[in-house]
Design a protein around this nucleic acid. Structure first.
Length: 249
DNA sequence: AGTAGTGTTCGGCC
DNA sequence: TGGCCGAACACTAC
């Protein structure tokens, strides 16, 4: 389900509920009492990376879909929703997600410049954070939500392939122009992901993720569980450059 | 039909 | 104190 672009699709899909009053809230979440939301008006839907934010007057409900989460709009399935919001003319059902109540103003909670899909995204800020973390691996850097909020494992693999950078590089050994490309393509690929996901053609467009062969060199991709995050990483050992002084994984 | 994975948090253990 | 690791969560596409 997740990765930032999917949350953008959800945010667009629920716009009709903006400004509406929650007639009844229920669900199995233990992080808040759903009744707390009864009769409250939704002032806005926002997102930060993979976080989906349901904003009320003074409080915000944070939804994170983790690996298996899902949602249905004006539909239900057999499972009992973690959180269900019912409106005059429809309902939003959220399954298998982490729910959290935010009582502080969200501008104090979130660094909007870190969200790759936000108009407030600031690539220079991301590059500065990368420079501050020279010992971080490239594959971990892209998954770091404080730097690239919204980037997930698919986007990580595709961005590193696009920019010809080996996932095992230490950030400190990657040339400046490549760090700039990394931040640019994190955004570009996220918007490509969004477009392809809407067209139901996302998988067809994968060049590296889950692939067996490099489309540039026609040699086998390496598949390794890499980095602190220990996530599936697909890369071409020929066209994705490993810069000097790196320890090959 | 079983397995692995678009993710994060938490607690235990050095 | 803190970093690392595995478990938990809970669904579904392949």
């Amino acid at each position: 389900m997740p990765e930032g672009p999917t949350i953008i699709i959800l945010k667009e899909a629920v716009q009709a509920f903006k400004g509406q009053k929650v007639l009844r809230a229920e669900g199995t979440t233990k992080k808040l009492d759903p009744a707390l939301l009864n009769n409250r008006v939704i002032t806005d839907f926002k997102s930060w990376g993979k976080h989906f934010l349901i904003c009320f007057d003074t409080i915000t409900v944070r939804i994170h879909f983790m690996l298996f989460g899902s949602y249905l709009i004006n539909e239900r399935k057999a499972a009992i929703p973690r959180l269900s919001l019912q409106f005059d003319d429809g309902e939003l059902n959220l399954y298998a997600c982490a729910v959290q109540l935010i009582e502080k103003p969200i501008d104090e909670v979130y660094d909007w410049t870190a969200d790759v899909m936000s108009p407030a995204w600031d690539g220079n800020s991301a590059i500065r954070k990368l420079r501050e973390n020279p010992a971080m691996l490239a594959c971990d850097a892209l998954l770091n939500q404080e730097i690239f909020a919204g980037v997930g494992n698919i986007i990580k693999n595709e961005v590193l392939f696009r920019i010809h950078v080996h996932p095992g590089n230490l950030v400190g050994n990657i040339p400046e122009n490549k760090l700039a490309e990394m931040t640019e393509e994190a955004v570009n690929y996220s918007f490509d992901f969004l477009r392809w996901k809407k067209e139901f053609t996302l998988k067809k467009h994968w060049l590296a993720h889950t692939k067996k062969t490099c489309p540039r060199d026609h040699i086998p991709f390496h598949k390794e569980y890499m980095g602190k995050t220990n996530r599936r990483t697909f890369y071409c050992p020929v066209c994705q450059e490993l810069y000097q002084d790196n320890e090959a994984p």
